[in-house]
Nucleic acid binder design. Structure first.
Lengths: 342, 342
DNA sequence: CTGAAAGCGCTTACAG
DNA sequence: CTGAAAGCGCTTACAG
């Protein structure tokens, strides 16, 4: 490998001059500079990042930690992050924590290779976040409950929940079931709260019960459908008023749940009797005609990148908390109009 | 930051001893070692990766270059890669090339931060791959035409194409249209060739024409549907025998194409008249009931990681080319049985 | 404008 | 088994 010494010797200058000519052209005499550049070019000199980084005591890299990249959500956030990071010349390290036993080691190790860390959602347990904060790691939290002292970017459920509720009310819905356990995590709690409040604020006479599920996957969506269907046939399940029948609308905590539920309802020939909505807008939602709430995923990543840059270049020291808006996407699953009557 | 010197001073030994105690316990006297470890622990010493890497002249990192992470394909490959890399303690850098003007700079820069590079699909133009090879960069090519001198992992279309053709023939199909331009890229060419050969080898009297499209997206899938439908109403399009009607089966070069085509056919009320298949098995394929060919995406990534490790630790010098098998996933789109007759 | 030198934080022959 | 020293490849005060 050719090093800065080779270039210096060949060009007949000191390594300091080579370094300067390459980094800050202004402080070197034009002829000297030309000579150095020519030599560097001829020898195909590529400065070692390692040497430079050690001298500068910075990595010019940031790490992104996420649970998983399956499913479009985090993948898109990472893309948004990477595109901004690339612009400012910062490399991106990634690390997935799902199913890993040694998350602590994994993340602290990564912290040692980066100038800062971006944490997506529940990728890292809270105590570890606090530890990183305490040890002075530059952090940005994405789509995760904010800590007053740490930069964060999240999405706001409020406006979409209001739009969603308005839409369902307009279609005639008055009784609602929320599928998902608000106690299971901040995301679900947030969505549930937003929908509840939107209902309360609507001024309409409505009612919403909760059908808790543990994992937000298709299987549980199907189970939820079964639970709802049984209610109408007299089998009581605890989550609902015993006198209930199928609700007018089922608001699911995420799309997978909604897709499973929709599939089961369709199999049972009951899909025309209930409005169904999801949350996230995964790709399959489009094909299933699922009304849902879209998160600005790439923008989440891009914003995180900008926040981290501001921290690292010292532009800003006070923590900032960005709140991005979500968007209601109306498709066919949320309306009874035009469907076969019950 | 606490460095190796702090630990050495505090423990009353030399930095060499600290280094040894931490890396190779065996060559240090037990008491000394215990003292060092205790001190390191107490001072919360984390060895600087930068210092270590410069001394060892290795990055303990690999770079993965891909076109994009939208869509599940490359995201899953990256996940497969990352999980193996994490096991062997190698960090993963990522870089997306889609829409980037300075791919060469971007990739060579990344090469300078890594011990090796994994290139997914068409992320990097061939001349650049050759340049990297020439400059001695450790490389693994994934899902991309192989170079005899470079490690590679790809999937084989043959067995799935055979299964796909067998399946369609069994359902009664004899006339086929392949949607996609084999001249547009190696993937499509490969798939087309595999299907053609499977048809030829079937011993049946069949015919397959090509309906070329440039981008493999939904919009073009819809257009392809329109082209096929027009053929049946007398409007001639150049790709088909003038006497043709709707073919028995439409084999699409990827799922997006197939999904768009399927959607358009459904709108036109003609979905029961033709069998449709895709390729890739994206998530939406499941919801659309699309028969398709699944690639072992995570396994592609994991295999790439193993190949790169073998290169880097010198276990193996001769290039290896892995070929993973694909799998036919039969759903409803590929059969006319049970559908409304024409 | 340029060079000699110190330093970034480690590892590892080389002596002892 | 341990230490002093050289070295990994850069950057950047400090002199001149």
């Amino acid at each position: 490998m050719t090093t800065i010494r080779d270039v210096a010797r060949e060009a007949g200058v000191s390594i300091a001059t080579v370094s300067r000519a390459l980094r800050d052209p202004a402080i070197v005499k034009p002829d000297t500079r030309a000579k150095v550049l020519e030599t560097a070019e001829r020898l195909q000199f590529r400065p070692s990042h390692l040497g430079r980084q050690l001298a500068e005591r910075r990595h010019a890299a940031a790490g992104v930690v996420f649970p998983d990249l399956s499913g479009p959500y985090y993948a898109d956030v990472v893309m948004g992050y990477e595109s901004v990071a690339a612009e400012v010349g910062r490399s991106v390290l990634i690390s997935s924590t799902r199913g890993r036993a040694d998350v602590e080691k994994q993340v602290t190790d990564m912290a040692g290779r980066c100038d800062g860390l971006v944490i997506l959602g529940p990728a890292v347990p809270e105590p570890l976040v606090q530890h990183l904060k305490a040890t002075g790691t530059h952090l940005v939290l994405v789509a995760r409950p904010a800590d007053a002292g740490i930069d964060s970017v999240s999405t706001a459920a409020t406006s979409s929940a209001t739009a969603l509720v308005r839409h369902l009310l307009d279609d005639g819905a008055r009784t609602f079931v929320f599928v998902g356990d608000p106690a299971a995590g901040p995301d679900v709690a947030d969505r549930h709260a937003a929908v509840s409040q939107a209902l309360a604020a609507s001024g309409e006479q409505t009612r919403m019960s909760i059908l808790p599920v543990d994992d937000l996957d298709e299987t549980n969506g199907r189970r939820a459908a079964d639970a709802l269907l049984h209610d109408t046939t007299g089998t009581r399940t605890p989550h609902c008023d015993p006198s209930s029948t199928l609700p007018d609308a089922v608001v699911c905590a995420n799309d997978e749940l909604a897709l499973g539920l929709l599939a089961r309802l369709t199999e049972a020939g009951q899909e025309h009797r209930v409005r169904v909505t999801g949350w996230d807008d995964v790709m399959a939602a489009r094909w299933a005609g699922l009304t849902t709430v879209r998160q600005p995923m790439r923008e989440l990543g891009a914003t995180a990148a900008r926040l981290l840059e501001e921290q690292l270049d010292g532009t800003r020291t006070a923590p900032r908390h960005e709140l991005l808006d979500t968007e209601l996407v109306v498709r066919t699953s949320s309306t009874l109009l035009g469907k076969e009557p019950a």
